[in-house]
Design a protein around this nucleic acid. Structure first.
Lengths: 292, 292
DNA sequence: GGATTTATGGAATTAATATTTCATAATGCG
DNA sequence: CGCATTATGAAATATTAATTCCATAAATCC
């Protein structure tokens, strides 16, 4: 019998509880076993993939020590423990879409606040994955070229999309690019838009249900001959009609609110791209504006 | 000898070329082998971890067919092919941090716009992963309880953090929670803040370098006895001093701009949490506000 | 400081897993 | 239709990997 209870009745079923179990006992583990414990937490992937012998070698212990470690945690043997490490990889890899639907269910049934938070994280991650697949370089280049040639860049968005617009305005400002954020506070939008010319350009962001004011103003801008780059959610968006270049960004939603992460990432890439282009192809040696 | 060349000289080294090789030959593959091919593309994870016997069973073929399939692709045997499937999982799992640093280098050396975009996506993803680890439920509960009890929720943020504040204001508005976004446009912030009382509460978001105005106003709010929930970036943030509850959110940066995704996700979770709590524990049956 | 318990290393054993082989079935071709 | 070729299934074999066992070394306790 060992100093610590030989076997916890129930072996951890998932990686998190396994991790917790290890951390809890960490202090009073025999030297070699502790060595394995540390290795396991530091290199979980190796344990998922390796064989008992190879892992033992990497951790500088005997294979038998590995098995003792597993048994100490309540597992039958090394193989049973390894299964948990493999399961972890599977889940981590398993499509975020699945995770998201699972979390949606969970939240519907009144799970804790943590579940809601996880849901938003999953929604954002999914959206980022999607947008990463769907945006193509050619569009990106065109949009950047178009905006880089503009005298003033007008940024237009309402409601849900407004945060994206305000971040664009902030970023372009920092990058010393003349920008006009079309604000709604004082009801002066029409006048602000009136000054736009074909030498300017506009970035417009809108998702279903498209704010009527945004569409209306997009139309006005188009009529004034202002080139338009749009970030929207489908080919059927009314914006697609007015825009010279448009991006389809499908943001996942959770608890009734859509993520903005994908739009934000795209917006930022456009801003930096415009700044780089303005600085000229020669300026490429220091393309990274160090601003916070 | 089989109808198709028995063994491609060089076996695919990575999953993508393996996939391509399979797709290319798909049409002229013997029935059982084709069955394996389809299974392999549909369930790559199973192949990574399963044993020849278990995979064969899942795909309804004999283990030997599995080996023939591997050899047809130029591998030595099943084990060699499986290695490619495992490698794929490893890479997919490999820390986003590594990817991010790689992309940063790439961008510094003047890579295309696509690389910049990927960088922002990676930065956002990393931030989300981090925040998901660091936020704990107890804090979340406390923050939600605090805000749920407020008459009016004041939302305060400047510059980079402002988009988060505007999204919070939008969300709380939709959720019919009385909200006051402290805007800076007309320079009336001081007056707006002056109306706040201990019965209200405030959400303040600020990251280094902390906008002086935000800190100053946070202090004022604290002096007025307004409970404060802060989202900031370190324990040394001046906000931590004034806040009753604060969250540490470390956003990764790229090309000089930090992601906002993690803060956004946290902010949304708080908003929904407050709305749920207000609706009362009984209202839990329909916790999902269907608003777009 | 000696006795007893506990931990460790290393080899032996057992279990599992991949691979090969061979008989048979299916397919294609003249 | 019949022969040759290719594909398939099933079991035997070889290989590899996990587990157990035992001798020895530390550590702990009286």
């Amino acid at each position: 019998m060992s100093a610590i209870d030989k076997a916890t009745a129930a072996p951890p079923r998932d990686f998190e509880s396994l991790r917790a179990a290890i951390l809890e006992r960490r202090q009073n583990l025999p030297k070699r076993i502790a060595q394995v414990a540390a290795y396991a937490l530091d290199n979980p992937d190796d344990i998922a993939f390796g064989t008992a012998a190879s892992i033992a070698a990497s951790a500088s212990v005997q294979p038998s020590t590995l098995i003792r470690f597993a048994q100490l945690l309540g597992f039958d043997g090394f193989t049973a423990m390894q299964a948990v490490f493999r399961e972890r990889l599977r889940e981590r890899t398993s499509s975020y879409d699945d995770r998201l639907t699972a979390l949606r269910d969970k939240a519907e049934n009144g799970a804790g606040h943590r579940a809601i938070f996880d849901g938003f994280v999953a929604a954002a991650t999914t959206s980022l994955q999607d947008v990463s697949r769907s945006v193509d370089e050619a569009h990106l280049d065109q949009a950047i070229t178009l905006l880089a040639g503009a005298e003033t860049i007008h940024v237009l968005a309402r409601r849900r999309s407004y945060p994206v617009a305000s971040y664009i305005a902030y970023a372009l400002g920092k990058l010393q690019i003349r920008t006009q954020l079309i604000e709604s506070a004082a009801g002066m939008e029409a006048e602000m838009i009136g000054f736009a010319t074909a030498k300017d350009a506009a970035v417009i962001i809108s998702f279903a249900p498209y704010a009527p004011a945004t569409i209306e103003q997009a139309e006005t801008l188009a009529r004034l001959g202002v080139p338009i780059v749009a970030i929207t959610d489908s080919a059927f968006s009314p914006l697609a009609e007015f825009a010279d270049i448009w991006f389809e960004v499908a943001e996942a939603d959770f608890a009734g609110f859509r993520s903005l992460s994908a739009s934000m990432a795209l917006a930022m890439a456009i801003c930096i791209g415009v700044a780089e282009k303005r600085r000229g192809p020669a300026g490429r040696s220091s393309p990274e504006p160090k601003i916070r």
